[in-house]
Structure formats: structure tokens, C-alpha cells
Simulated assay, not measured.
Amino acid sequence: MADGIDALLELWKDHREADRQTENQRATLTNIIIIVVAAGLGFIAQTGLQTSMLVVTLPMLGFGLYGALACLKFHERSAFHVGQAKGLRRKIASQFPDLSIEAGLTETSRAQRARFPQLRRMRSYLVWVALHCAIAVAGAALSGWIIFS
């Protein structure tokens, strides 16, 4: 029995660690994109919006779109690992009903919903996708300004 629980716990830990790794990858990618875009915007601020700056603004559009797509993919991977971990947690909880694992999580969830009713509905991955879309829109707007001015 202990070997089975140990195996379940190890699988659960593996999925939670994979989920953390996915979030770290998303954070790293977002940070890189923000740094590159900030440097590009600084360069534009120094030189002005000229035709030669399309070499900066068009990649901004691409970085924003790539970042948004990557965030969606990271969310998909995260959802997979969280789902797997949740299933393993339920299996562990069913083997140890006296620990009241699910009841404790339900109560914590209920308190969280009461404390943050609006924010609870907002999905964090959509915040990251929106940030990257804003970068893409800024790149497109600056490119359009350069081309059509």
C-alpha cells in the first residue's frame, strides 16, 4: 500500500513541477520580449519614426503575435499538468478519507471566491495574452504610422 501511495505522490509532484516549469518558461519568454520591445521603442524614441524604423516596428508585431500564441500553448500544457495532478490528488484523497483533503480544498476555494469575486473569474493566461496582443498592436500601429505618414 505504501509503495502505491509513494508512486502516486511522485507522479503528483512530477506534474506540479512540470506546471511550474511551464510557468517559468512563459515568464522568461515574456521578459525577453518586453526587454527587446523596450529597447526597440527606446531606439525609435531617439531616432524618430522614419521608414528605416520598420526594421524595429514590424518585428514588434511578430514578437507580440508569437508571445500571444506561446502563452496560449503554455496555458494548454499547464492545464494538462494541473488536470493530471488533480486526478492524482483525488485518488490519494480517496485512499485517505480521514485527511479531508477535498473538503479542505473546497472550503479554501469558497473563501477565495468570496474574497475576490471578480478577480477569481479573470484568467491569468488571458492577461498575458492581452499583454502580447498589445505589443503586436503597438507594432502594427507604429508600422502603419510610418507607412501611411
Rank of each mutant, 00 (worst) to 15 (best):
M1K: 01
A2I: 08
A2D: 15
I5S: 06
L8S: 08
L8H: 04
L9W: 04
L11Q: 10
L11K: 06
L11C: 01
D14N: 07
D14H: 12
D14E: 14
H15W: 00
E17Y: 04
A18Y: 02
A18F: 02
D19G: 13
R20T: 05
T22E: 07
N24E: 13
T28F: 08
I33F: 02
I34Y: 02
V36L: 14
V37N: 03
A39V: 09
A39M: 10
A39E: 09
G40C: 09
G42A: 04
G42D: 12
A45G: 07
G48A: 13
L49Y: 04
L49S: 03
Q50M: 12
T51Y: 09
S52F: 07
S52Q: 10
S52N: 04
S52R: 08
M53A: 14
L54F: 02
V56P: 02
T57P: 08
L58T: 10
L58E: 14
L58N: 01
G62M: 15
F63N: 02
F63C: 10
F63Q: 10
F63T: 04
Y66D: 04
G67F: 04
G67R: 07
K73Y: 05
K73E: 11
F74V: 04
H75D: 08
S78I: 01
S78D: 06
A79Q: 15
A79L: 13
G83S: 12
L88F: 03
I92F: 07
I92T: 04
F96L: 15
P97C: 06
P97R: 05
D98T: 02
L99S: 03
L99K: 04
G104L: 11
T106S: 15
E107F: 00
T108N: 06
S109H: 11
A111L: 14
A114W: 01
R115N: 08
R115K: 09
P117M: 01
R121D: 03
S124T: 11
V127R: 01
W128K: 04
A130I: 02
L131Y: 10
L131V: 12
H132Q: 14
A136D: 13
A138L: 15
L142T: 05
L142Y: 07
W145Q: 12
I146V: 11
I147Q: 08
